[in-house]
Design a protein around this nucleic acid. Structure first.
Lengths: 242, 242
DNA sequence: CGATGCATTGATATCGGTCAAAGATGGTGG
DNA sequence: CCACCATCTTTGACCGATATCAATGCATCG
């Protein structure tokens, strides 16, 4: 496993001028518009990593921010109990690597082979200083993402296994790249264990929940990593039943 | 039950100039410094409400923001399933009433008799425009609170009933007014049902968890609404066990 | 001092976790 | 191209924790 994006050098202290980059650390993910992404790519370097590569570890000096160009990345934290809390799955256009006090707050690992852009924080800071509009967008995205993940966390707390999985499938469906998959088909590139850690369930419960959704004719699993939504309204009903 | 803070008038459209006030809606609570609070109080009006008064309802036009001067307020949402999700308890110095698209996102109700300051959003907006430092502080507080509540939600999902209650008691202990209660004593002004809704448990489970903490000599309940921490380190251990 | 809501306690049911084992899948090298 | 091995996934049995239902106890406020 390679490790990138972490050196012993401290990040640019001028980051202090953009405190939201630090404050909003836990979100760990931002979705940008095409225009914003183009701007950021100008200052970044392309990076291709095989599946399972650790992009950076929790606590490492946060000197870079990353943008997903292709593939999927997971962001997680290992808890003292041995459990793993999977905070987010990151796809095309997602930005990740935000830090708190100059350190990454999560560990991130490639789920599939991925293409990333790496943006040095120092240069990003300069860009944000020059472009107040971009900074503004950044802030809006940060708070938006925070809200989303907060909503997820709250909601996960009160739902049976099937409901959580239904919600997860809908989430993945909403984010899928329409150009690369058929109507109703949703790729699930991550492992069952990853899904379990994300939903706060055991592997086995995810399996059983999948079986349950199948039994109710809501979805059909073409294979482990591709699910087809059979009854979208029925699925939505279960997913929404808070 | 009286209802205040909700009229049919639309909120000041200039609110659009302060999008973070809307964006950060779900946090619903901000803790301000004394200086900031003083500034805000200048534009507000004092309000005394008896226990159980609804301050505003979910979905009502958000024309005011409120600051708690004394007493406790709860912020909640009733879910379609009939469950109630209790988002936050608000105490002295807490600010609440942030909205999304001009509407309140939660329902808020006085837990005890309370004294509030009511701040018209229009005037608050003006103040924020004049005082960039205050606006900045506002943003920092918003993101901070968001992070906190996010952390809570995530953490709640992986803990047994006793652990959740231990965490809750610690939370309340951290926020209690030292001047009005003895060392180690923590007032719990809210009902067991409220605690249950906050922790995602049933009333009965809260009762049993309380008994469990008592059995382990970690706390002692002087009465229903006053708990004394007997073994702080032991309690912290249970509360921290993720 | 009674009445009403709140809190506790007990009995039972249900759901998900855990453990164990079998079944699929995919990658590697011959 | 196939066989084999490692890993991931599924299935089953069982257990424990919490929800739910029911009843009793308690306090608070007229």
């Amino acid at each position: 496993m390679r490790k990138v994006g972490a050196t012993d050098a401290h990040p640019d202290p001028s980051l202090r001028a953009v405190p939201f980059l630090k404050t909003a650390a836990d979100a760990d993910t931002i979705v940008l518009t095409t225009r914003q992404r183009e701007q950021l790519i100008l200052i970044g370097t392309r990076l291709r990593l095989p599946a399972r590569t650790i992009v950076y570890r929790e606590g490492a000096p946060a000197d870079s921010v990353f943008a997903v160009m292709d593939g999927a990345v997971k962001s997680y934290r290992d808890l003292p109990s041995g459990r793993r809390e999977l905070c987010a799955f990151l796809f095309r256009r997602d930005l990740f690597g935000l830090a708190e006090r100059g350190r990454y707050v999560n560990c991130t690992q490639a789920v599939t082979r991925v293409t990333l852009y790496r943006l040095p924080v120092s240069q990003l800071t300069l860009l944000l200083k020059r472009d107040t509009e971009l900074q503004f967008q950044f802030l809006a995205k940060v708070t938006h993402e925070l809200r989303e993940s907060q909503r997820r966390a709250v909601v996960i707390n009160r739902r049976d296994a099937a409901g959580r999985l239904a919600m997860f499938i809908e989430l993945m469906a909403a984010r899928r790249d329409r150009s690369t998959c058929r109507e109703g088909e949703v790729p699930l590139p991550m492992s069952r264990t990853d899904i379990a850690d994300y939903l706060g369930l055991s592997r086995e419960s995810v399996s059983r929940a999948a079986k349950e959704l199948l039994r109710r004719h809501l979805v059909h699993f073409e294979n482990t990593h591709l699910v087809r939504i059979v009854d979208a309204t029925g699925l939505a009903k279960i997913a929404a039943a808070v």
